[in-house]
């Protein structure tokens, strides 16, 4: 009786279906984000007060909100904001974290000491609290939100990169590379970097989901994107007042966030299984 189930699980493991599903979903989300204006059935910001609080029906597939805006169109438009923010945050933090991590790990010494203490201090802050504090200081808005999350996120990459670099620095083939006459720069680029990058890619794809969640929660709290913008967190915030008689306003963007985070987590997990099976223990999603 369990045979088909076992066979199914076997199939999942063997073919790395998680990776396949992750890639498909991610690509789907990216396509939706790119072609948003062509897919949206209605203008996402156009208010029609006569059409407010319409439950999901054939005309408005996910219903309308308290200002009569089509929710499906707003979610599609919102995917652009969320994705773009996540890509910027991950991109900037990977760049900073990787560079500083490589320098700190490979050269060691005083630079390493100073950088790692900074990282320690920053890691002690919970991301959301830090972002809240920073936003009150420099003001709200999407760009400030990106800056705030980057300030914390880069430390993760710096830590992982630095750990790997320190380990690799003592490897025999790095010694061999030095004796052949490689300069420090070419050792970092040709030897250390390729050995670190796969771990960083995995970590980054896992983080994409986390960061989409962060952005949504910060926007929900009123930082980041501001109300007319169809950001998912903002939409949930707007919908929360009507959750008793119009639950679709808050629930639909919530599902969108969940699917997005799931897609990137699946992508990251799949990549991890493919690139480095040993990493199952060392890198986890938050």
């Amino acid at each position: 009786m369990f045979k088909p189930i076992n066979r199914f699980i076997d199939f999942l493991n063997r073919k790395n279906v998680i990776l396949f599903m992750g890639i498909t979903l991610t690509i789907l989300i990216i396509i939706v984000a790119i072609f948003a204006p062509y897919i949206e059935p209605y203008n996402p910001t156009k208010m029609e007060l006569s059409q407010k609080f319409i439950a999901p029906c054939s005309k408005y597939i996910l219903g309308t909100d308290h200002l009569g805006r089509d929710i499906l169109s707003r979610i599609i438009e919102g995917s652009r904001v969320s994705l773009l923010t996540a890509v910027f945050v991950v991109g900037i933090s990977v760049f900073i974290g990787l560079t500083l991590g490589l320098i700190s790990g490979y050269f060691g010494g005083a630079v390493d000491m100073v950088l790692m203490r900074i990282v320690d201090v920053l890691l002690a802050f919970p991301t959301i609290i830090f972002a809240l504090a920073l936003s009150t200081m420099i003001g709200t808005g999407q760009i400030n939100l990106i800056i705030a999350i980057c300030c914390i996120q880069w430390t993760r990459y710096a830590r992982v990169t630095r750990g790997e670099a320190v380990m690799l620095k003592n490897a025999e083939y790095i010694d061999a590379a030095k004796t052949i006459g490689n300069s420090n720069l070419s050792i970092i680029l040709n030897y250390v970097f390729p050995n670190v990058i796969s771990k960083i890619i995995i970590l980054a794809s896992l983080d994409m989901g986390t960061i989409i969640l962060y952005c949504a929660s910060l926007s929900f709290l009123g930082l980041g994107a501001q109300p007319p913008s169809p950001e998912w967190g903002v939409m949930i915030n707007e919908g929360k007042d009507y959750i008793q008689y119009a639950p679709w306003i808050a629930v639909s963007p919530g599902i969108a966030i969940a699917v997005c985070a799931l897609a990137f987590n699946m992508l990251g997990d799949g990549l991890r299984d493919m690139l480095d099976p040993r990493m199952k223990e060392t890198v986890r999603t938050e």
Binding site: A171, E172, A176, G181, N195
Partner: peptide, 25 residues
Amino acid sequence: TKQWRPFRKKIQIVFQNPQMTFNPR
């Protein structure tokens, strides 16, 4: 490192663990 460069050609080494001598990637 820079001053060592010309001597790298003249002094070479063979390590103990041959499989660890080359870039694994």
